[in-house]
Design a protein around this nucleic acid. Sequence first.
DNA 1: TCAAAAGTGTTATCCTTACACCCATGT
DNA 2: ACATGGGTGTAAGGATAACACTTTTGA
Lengths: 307, 307
Amino acid sequence: MKHFEIGLNAVIYAVTEDEPRVLTVLDEGLGSDSPALAWGRLDPVGDRTLELGLRRWVREQTGLELGYVEQLYTFGDRERAPAAATEEARLFSVAYVALVWEEEPPGRLATWRNVYDFLPWEDWREGRPPILDRLLVPHLRAWASGRPTPRAAREERIEITFGLGDAGWDEERVLDRYELLYEAGVFSQRHAAQAGDGMALDHRRILATALGRLRGKLKYRPVVFELLPNHFTLLQLQRVVESLAGVRLYKPNFRRLVEKAGLVEGTGKLHGGTGGRPAELFAFRREVLRERPASGVGLPSLPAPTA
Amino acid sequence: MKHFEIGLNAVIYAVTEDEPRVLTVLDEGLGSDSPALAWGRLDPVGDRTLELGLRRWVREQTGLELGYVEQLYTFGDRERAPAAATEEARLFSVAYVALVWEEEPPGRLATWRNVYDFLPWEDWREGRPPILDRLLVPHLRAWASGRPTPRAAREERIEITFGLGDAGWDEERVLDRYELLYEAGVFSQRHAAQAGDGMALDHRRILATALGRLRGKLKYRPVVFELLPNHFTLLQLQRVVESLAGVRLYKPNFRRLVEKAGLVEGTGKLHGGTGGRPAELFAFRREVLRERPASGVGLPSLPAPTA
DNA sequence: TCAAAAGTGTTATCCTTACACCCATGT
DNA sequence: ACATGGGTGTAAGGATAACACTTTTGA
């Protein structure tokens, strides 16, 4: 092994029917029948920048024209590729997150998959996911007990990353949770299949990294709008935020927050037929990208249930 | 050109005498006599992860044992290396930011340089840097005028990234400002020497990226403490934050903020001999890393001068 | 005694949260 | 009528920003 291979990975998100989706492919070449993230190569001569290269092969493979694209992280651990491949070259992946709205029919080999198929414990919209108490926390606890020395440290780590203490659940720590579950062997045991679907190579880790980053970014940059059509109701906007954050929000305050931040402007038009009073359609005020790119959509969390 | 080269760049920060420093090297191999960021190669066989590889060669080259290390960005533009080199291989750099306290004597070839030598317009601690009005803004204005079409857009961009409008200066937009100056040709004209010192290749851009990221991170993660000894006074802490943020802070509120956030705890000890009443020495409460890693040091900005 | 730095108290203001309530449409 | 979603008012509490002021040392 004396040279390098560079791959570009794209975590392409869309939100359809209030569910967050990633674009996945089935790639025999990766030596796995699990879904993989969209993947391509840089043309070292033709692609002027990494991002342009990414856009090019995504377009070629799927026909999708990416809008918002952001570099996520570069993965280069020695063990991330199968040993056989490692003999020849060390594999790097420069991973990007992309947000699209179009619900395009993806290319033949590509499929939209629900993000929470792979990370089911991250979706708290319907309350605490049962898988936590049914499988994950018991498994983690068992893993922590046993050896005396690292036990307290492990237990504390579990408390914190899974919000068991008084600090509560922090929706941004997606990667911490994934890594803890991975270390604890949750994905390599008999019941691995109950802990969500797997992905090829370390793609599930990349997905976790991307989700955590996106959840953070939502709060201080107006990126949600990349996932919406030009006109949308405030509830649609809220649902998209909720689907990514994995949390329910309190409507009245959400509306005010968004409006006060000047993120949207009402078009006079109304949107009816959804079973209630017709809602006004809003549009993203593109000016804020220039004015105050620090603004985002905050997360006024849901008041604790009274009962 | 059909293969890839991968380099690891480290933006190693320290704060000495209230000034932020970067570790620089003089590397003939880069075809430039300008200082460069510390740079090394990954051993594809020996280094298990990118970060471990980075720590290894930094130790070998400078004797520094890095503490906090964070991946910054991967740079891979086709034109970032000299054309000659590009014929053979495409050069990637995975850049990291590292924070150290030790004021080690760096290795023979390495030097600590003041960050603001390279980005002088970013230091607002003594008020608005004169270079802005003396050189940069006039240059940008001249660049914006001329062609009719992009003029308004260019002018707006200048207003915003340099805080000329009512939004004011946003200390985090370091990269935006660097890129705007670069596009406007500030670094390739006669007076380039007045616009701060240059660096090899695109290292100045990497430095700008790192500073912006660090300034953002300061506000929500307790990273400053990596740049301080175990015991410090609150003013020392404040000075370190100020030197990185490039802004003066208001002491009474800064203290309270830090204490209320539970970031520090008083050791009974005092530290005198600095020309005033002795200050209590504080220590970082390492627990917060586990408890609430979302806490950081906010920036209670200085009240506007009354005159 | 004065300068320099360490610290404390207190207010005005804004933002967020929580809860109560009314409005308009389809069935 | 009533369910569903749209939308407004408002008061309590907390965080922040601003300013005034006291304390303790060294020169």
